[in-house]
Nucleic acid binder design. Structure first.
Lengths: 118, 118
DNA sequence: TTTATTGCTATAAAAATTATAGTAGCAAAA
DNA sequence: TTTTGCTACTATAATTTTTATAGCAATAAA
């Protein structure tokens, strides 16, 4: 089988070479899982997310929120059209199917800190 | 609490704002989980990995293999110093602790294809 | 009146990824 | 015997992603 004949998986108009890369295409951005991790506990406003993730730039946060929304993983709700704005982000039902993955990713981070530190 | 006072987690000389970002720092490269996914089943040579991942460039594959090695997740074994070379990559014991995460990432990709396609 | 908050966007620089081509020593095919 | 291919990569440059820094408009508090 030639390289060009490698079977590609298609989802949401994008192509992936395997099931793992499909998942990573949706949650693999540097900050996407961190966003999802915080939204797991509760709905958060833009400014609340920013406080939870002080090291991410606003541009990146905006872009990743948009990507997550486009992939149907989170909802964006605007409560007032005039300033002060109130925008809330929450997991969709589809996004909630990621819960076990996000939790195990967070737990592995804790596990590493406890067992492999220095 | 000021932004600058946000508690940072330290591991392997790098700093992360939360446990999820620590994990993603190690497996969050665009192709790292795909590499790990293939090594989960068995040890593979460089050329075998390349065949499994035809859409990744060799430079990126090399760089990500090096990063995974530096983080202690995979082993690199050279069998002959003169050409033809034989280089094998395998999971370390530490890398194997990621098994449930990598598997759930791959399974979620399959799940999405089965239940949310078109 | 100055400062802060809201949820972002504009511009430019840095970092990550991709595209393309090339290396050396050996083996098989033409 | 010349061409082609295999091994595990590296070099250079282009593109894409992420970061850094600053700024917006409306409102409210100091």
């Amino acid at each position: 089988m030639k390289e060009s004949e490698h079977k590609m998986l298609k989802f949401n108009g994008k192509e992936y070479p395997c099931c793992a890369s499909l998942t990573m295409g949706m949650i693999g951005g540097k900050w996407k899982t961190v966003i999802l991790f915080h939204l797991l506990k509760k709905t958060l406003r833009y400014s609340e997310l920013r406080k939870e993730m002080p090291t991410v730039t606003e541009r990146t946060l905006s872009l990743q929120l948009k990507a997550l929304e486009e992939d149907g993983l989170i909802n964006r709700k605007v409560y007032t059209s005039k300033p002060p704005l109130k925008v809330e982000y929450s997991l969709t039902d589809f996004g909630k199917t990621l819960t076990p993955i996000i939790e195990s990713i967070a737990n592995w981070g804790d596990f590493v800190l406890e067992n492999y530190s220095d």
